[in-house]
Design a protein around this nucleic acid. Structure first.
Lengths: 129, 129
DNA sequence: GCTATACTTGTATCATGGCGTCAGCACTCC
DNA sequence: GGAGTGCTGACGCCATGATACAAGTATAGC
């Protein structure tokens, strides 16, 4: 898996559901991947390094069990948070800060875009009972 | 509890660790709260409504078990994703899109700020073995 | 005070996921 | 080909959390 950045194409059914940009950007997979402190630490490490790192390197510098690091990095690569490139017997994982930042900015924009236009409940008055 | 205000002062060790803005903004609690599809749906609903909603309203419009909705909304309020206001016997939950958007933009900025300056591993060359 | 409403909390069940260990595969070097 | 290195996969243990149902609490209207 050279670059897990492109995810699988959605089924027509999914497309028809016409989820808002917000719903699409708030990807549970990605957020779940980020929500785990260990993974966040690894991602932070990779972002700070600013260069591709091998699993061994990351495990060394973060003092985390090797197999855990391998698993977490693979998880993050799977959801598109990291890119991975195998060279010989070594896998180089890299975090792309700019892409990640763009993703969050897009999400922020999508939130700003949301409004009563897409209302899921009818906009009756709140309770001044 | 004489002064709960002092309890936040970090230990020297913690201070020395000097977490970056990124580390602080990547709050696992918030991300975990967002990472759950049901909660994301409820948040989306509240954002779209653009007004405070009661638990009953949200449960109705999302067709989700009432007690689940109550719990999920309480969870999101606890981590700061929603604000809640109790009026009589009704609790009005509101999502603040702009605040949430700002939060994500700050996170994006923090990612851009990260760099080899904060490097956690030594920047030796990647593998051109 | 009684009842209905709106929400919270307790409990039980189940699924998910993190973790450590170990075996195995792929690759490189000798 | 054998040994060593780097990583992946499978397994079991355990903690967490999502869910559903039911009971409890708080408030409003009568």
């Amino acid at each position: 898996m050279a670059s897990a950045l492109q995810r699988s194409s959605p089924s027509p059914k999914q497309a028809l559901r016409r989820r808002s940009r917000f719903d699409r950007l708030l990807d549970p997979e990605v957020l779940k991947a980020l929500a785990e402190p260990t993974r966040a630490r690894l991602l932070s490490c990779l972002l700070k390094c600013g260069r591709p790192c091998s699993v061994t390197e990351v495990a060394d510098c973060c003092s985390i069990d090797f197999s855990m690091v391998a698993r977490h990095l693979a998880t993050m690569a799977r959801v598109g948070l990291l890119s991975s490139e195998k060279k010989g017997r070594t896998v180089w994982y890299a975090a792309h800060g700019s892409a990640l930042a763009t993703r969050f900015r897009d999400l922020a924009d999508a939130i700003d875009e949301l409004g009563p236009a897409d209302a899921c409940c009818d906009p009756s008055e709140p309770g001044d009972t």
